[in-house]
């Protein structure tokens, strides 16, 4: 199904079109939220909130502002970061230090559940620390180039090309 058409239908409040978009993106959106909140139950709840918010604000999306997935990512990161500022989150964070999304991949014990994830885990390990943290900041946490440059202490003007190299490595292992 043509994605542009699906998005147009979604903007006209077509529930069936939205179901297709939901199924295409819900797992990725959950992954991003989980990397930030580190709690599966909370992740499930925020994911619902995000898709509800997207539905309620469907008219405000415009393809000229960016990809639909990127728009969802933004809503998801904001909702997740917002949650981490709440009291409830602070109480639940006694000894959680997991930081890179790669740690989340590594701490999954049920390796049989997804052979895909194993391949990805191996691949992510090959990325090198610089790429891991850069991808985490830009894609999972929504940092701007300025923020990422400050956080990682690398020159601002090199972020774009460094990131290109990192995503290139990721793509070559995934074969996309």
């Amino acid at each position: 199904m043509n994605q542009e058409l699906l998005i147009l239908q979604f903007q006209q409040q077509d529930v069936q079109a939205y179901e297709k978009l939901y199924n295409a993106y819900c797992k990725s959106i959950s992954g991003v939220i989980n990397t930030i909140v580190k709690d599966a139950e909370v992740t499930e709840e925020i994911t619902q909130d995000v898709f509800l918010k997207a539905w309620n604000n469907a008219a405000s999306y415009s393809p000229s502002k960016g990809r639909f997935f990127t728009w969802l990512l933004n809503i998801a990161r904001n909702a997740a970061i917002d949650y981490t500022r709440s009291k409830k989150y602070k109480q639940s964070q006694q000894n959680q230090t997991t930081d890179f999304f790669v740690d989340i991949l590594e701490t999954h014990d049920d390796l049989n559940s997804s052979t895909n994830a194993i391949g990805l885990k191996e691949m992510v390990e090959k990325l090198g620390d610089n790429c891991k943290s850069l991808i985490e900041l830009l894609y999972f946490k929504g940092y701007t180039q300025v923020e990422a440059s400050e956080e990682l202490n690398i020159p601002l003007g090199t972020i774009k090309t460094k990131n290109k190299t990192c995503i290139g490595q990721l793509r070559s292992v995934l074969g996309v």
Partner: peptide, 16 residues
């Protein structure tokens, strides 16, 4: 597509 796969792989919990 690459980012979709990567982000999805970090989550193995329930999705409603």
């Amino acid at each position: 597509n690459a980012i979709l796969q990567l982000t999805a792989a970090t989550y193995q919990g329930e999705v409603a």
